[in-house]
Design a protein around this nucleic acid. Sequence first.
DNA 1: TTAGGGTTAG
Length: 596
Amino acid sequence: MAAPSFSTATLTPVLIHLLRGASDLASIAATHAKLLKAGFASTLASSNHLLAAYSRCGAMNRARDLFDGMRHRDVISWTTLMSGYAASGRPREAIALLRVMQFSGVQPNVVTLSTAASACARLADEGLGRQVHARAEVAGCARDAVVATALVDMYGKAGRVEDSRAVFDGMAAPARNAVSWGAMLAVYAQNALGNEAIQLFAELRTNGGGLAPNHFMLSCAVSACAGVARLSIGKCVHGAVLRLGHGNNEVIAVALVDMYSKCGCYEYSRKVFDRIEQPSLIPYTSIIVSAAKYGLGRCALALLGEMVDRGVQPNDVTLLGVMHACSHSGLVDTGLQLLRSMQSKYGLAPCPSHYTCAVDMLGRAGRLDEAFELAKEAQIEGKEPLLLWNSLLSACRTHKRLDLATLAGQRVSEFNQDVAGGLVVMSNAYASAGQTDNAAAVWSSMRRRGIRKDPGCSWIEVKDIPYVFYAGAISCAGARADEVLMLLDELECKMREKGYKGRLGSARVSDGHEDDGDEGKGVMVGVHSEILALGFGLLVVPKGMTIRVMKNLRMCSDCHEAFKFISGIVEREFVVRDLNRFHHFKMGACSCNDYW
DNA sequence: TTAGGGTTAG
């Protein structure tokens, strides 16, 4: 019997099959050598297979050499190389190839253009993205499901949400599939437009042609609820997650941990986390960051220990979370130790944000000279030092160290970008020290320079509807506005009897955390937004239920005191989420023990 | 048949 003989015609498919399964450079190179030996390496199809294989394992230099040596290249060769560059973190080179390709007379197809759009998304480059969009229009494929979805994602990553939506709306209904819906949801969620995301998620039911939410859409929906702290909707989505069988999906679980934490329910976060079987880096980081927001420093430290014991390496975000937890629970020296040991213990160099956290921690503990030394030591470049000096400035104000405030204020004013926050703090430092002329000068300089600060606002969700309050503006309470003001008036009297020294509302030099409220139609000019939200909550949230107030800025110390008093007087529990953390008020005290 | 789209911590 004759020995089996393989012709090159049968050998090539075998080798190509080998290439497809190969993920390491060595085996790809070996197959490449065999193809060369068989004399088939230079056919277009084999070369394309080799290109794909090298690209898949990230060997872009090998792929490029091969590509440069090819006698003929078709649209697949070009697209394969583009895709390889985009996937290996070199999206700019991918886009550059698109130009050369067209120059060499090869026309891009839908695959090329979707690859190009996704490369632009990685760059978050709107200008390049628009060029790709225009090419897709010219080629007549801008409404192709994949191209359009990549464009939706691209505009979203570049922060152009309306353009994303226009592309999404321009897709013919049959072209819209689960991926395009998911992409649009992600755009809203990633651009802090949680309410729009929630609305789109609801639209899926009516206009989605029977599409069921998949794990992508669910994680986006949960994350959208987290962003706008919509607890009741978040719980509904959680229900859908369980019903649809995604209870064991780690990505969704992380989104849920984050959502419950941002909605003021740490216990639920913890429950969701505890159900994750082998939590990896991101779940651990997420629960640590949650614990930090609730001032659970020891708990965060325990979680860090647990993850290290399980062989999960923390990263810079994890350690920042632990430092915040230390900061929010008064474990100042433990937090500093962590900063000092992160390089030796975890191989991570401290980032500007770690220094900022440490400086903030020392500043709030009144250790201002140490904070100053650390701030000087931190060799930080770029935008970050603004935050660092700003936080120090704030601490100088609290602890009435005008000597250091002036120094920090100088550093803050060296930054030309986004100075509003810093100037407000500077003005408050003057005001606290009784230098009202200087305080007013800073304000007028801000007005002259057209610098505005985001207005402070607080909101409360009642029966799925968010009510947003601004300082001094009670109109959001609608017909109950007068009742709210009367209630607050009455509460203020009772608080005074119990020793409250602050003022719920009155005309005064702004303490800066809110500055441009209404002129005040009611009796309380200048009353802070969280007080109004609380007053409204006391009227409409049934007794026995916790009142949850969200705020976009840090709570001021006056309001914090007021909330403590009120919780004792009305015997109710309040949870306030401010910019940094949660405060749980109960029986006249706050869970933060006045660290914030 | 070798190339394409969406998710989680800060």
